[in-house]
């Protein structure tokens, strides 16, 4: 069941992300991104990471996407001509490097062994719940407490920095 779901959604998410890159209309591109986000959220559920799935939908598909659409509409990016590049070698390079990266990934077995691992889950089931994440995150015997606390300074810097950048004249 999970495997079938995985393959269907994998197809959908790959198609959606390719269309996101290739489509010329920014609003459509953003909507394709939403589809990709939702598919990824379902992958998280399949991997029994329910909390991350919920966060993915709330933060990315919700908040971030609304911001994206706001910016697109405020800047009125209706004309895609400016985005078209001509005579650039970049796409060719990107295709070659992308294919070689994909081949490396396939060879490394990360694509092939994933379903096999899913068949015999080693993950401790309640790990993905809010409770499981909380216990792991705040347990002083785990090394995750410190980076979690350090993140508060990171967020403070972001707040101070945003105000510094946004305020034109002091």
């Amino acid at each position: 069941m999970a495997t079938v779901l995985f393959w269907i959604l994998a197809l959908v998410s790959v198609i959606a992300s390719i269309s996101m890159v290739t489509t010329k209309n920014p609003v459509r591109s953003a909507l394709f991104l939403v589809v990709t986000f939702l598919c990824v959220a379902v992958f998280y559920v399949i991997l029994s990471a329910q909390f991350i799935a919920a966060v993915q939908i709330i933060v990315y598909a919700g908040a971030i996407m609304v911001l994206f659409l706001f910016v697109i509409m405020l800047l009125n990016l209706g004309t895609p001509q400016a985005l078209v590049e001509r005579g650039s070698l970049q796409p060719a390079f990107a295709v070659v490097l992308g294919i070689s990266f994909a081949v490396t990934l396939v060879m490394s077995g990360s694509f092939v062994t994933l379903p096999a691992v899913a068949a015999q889950p080693e993950v401790y089931e309640p790990l993905g719940t809010v409770r499981g994440i909380g216990i792991n995150l705040f347990d002083p015997k785990q090394p995750w407490l410190f980076p979690f606390e350090a993140t508060s300074i990171l967020l403070l810097i972001a707040v101070v920095g945003a105000i510094v950048m946004a305020k034109r004249k002091v």
């Binding site: 090394p143 980076p147 350090a150 810097i157 920095g161 510094v164």
Partner: peptide, 16 residues
């Protein structure tokens, strides 16, 4: 993981 969080702390401040 600690490394990543601290690199970001350094970088975000430097961007500003």
């Amino acid at each position: 993981i600690t490394l990543f969080v601290s690199i970001e702390t350094l970088s975000v401040a430097l961007y500003v």
